[in-house]
């Protein structure tokens, strides 16, 4: 059952991903991307990372993609006026991405051996365990990400605000 779920979700994710990059209309791209995100959230649940899954939905589907969607709508960018790249460029892009994929799959050999069979701890995905790790080991990154967000806020304001002074 769960195995079937895995492959189903994988299929959905990849298919949706493919649609994202091929859809003509950006709004459709956004929607496909949301589907892909939901599939990935499903994977997280399969991996027993419920907290992650929920946060993933909240952040990606709930915030980021809404922003995308509203920008597309606000700027009325749904018109299909994207000039097509030449076929050579398209081919080059496909080849590049394909090579990347081939490289990755090529490096897979012997992967089983590197993942030591650790005793599985099903608590790691829980809020408590995550919180402990986050606020003990990863306190500093947590703190400094404030800088990141603050600069993003400043940036969004200064770039888009109509009248600065």
């Amino acid at each position: 059952m769960t195995q079937f779920l895995f492959y189903f979700l994988s299929f959905v994710a990849v298919a949706a991903g493919l649609m994202v990059i091929t859809a003509k209309n950006p709004v459709h791209s956004v929607l496909y991307l949301i589907i892909a995100f939901f599939a990935i959230a499903g994977h997280y649940i399969l991996l027993n990372a419920q907290f992650l899954a929920i946060v993933h939905i909240i952040v990606y589907a709930g915030a980021i993609m809404v922003l995308f969607l509203s920008v597309i709508m606000l700027l009325n960018l749904n018109k299909d006026n994207e000039p097509a790249k030449s076929n050579v460029l398209k081919l080059a892009a496909a080849v590049a991405a394909g090579l990347l994929l081939v490289t990755f799959t090529g490096t897979l050999k012997g992967t089983e051996s590197i993942i030591a069979a650790q005793p599985y701890d099903d608590q790691i995905g829980y809020v408590k365990a995550l919180g402990k790790v986050l606020f003990n080991d990863f306190l500093l990154p947590f703190e400094v990400s404030a800088l990141l967000l603050l600069s993003a806020i400043i940036g969004a304001v200064v770039l888009v605000k109509h009248d600065l002074k």
Partner: peptide
């Protein structure tokens, strides 16, 4: 890797 490559492809394409 597949998803990542799709992303790369999207950026390039």
């Amino acid at each position: 890797a597949l998803l990542f490559s799709l992303g790369v492809l999207g950026v390039l394409l």
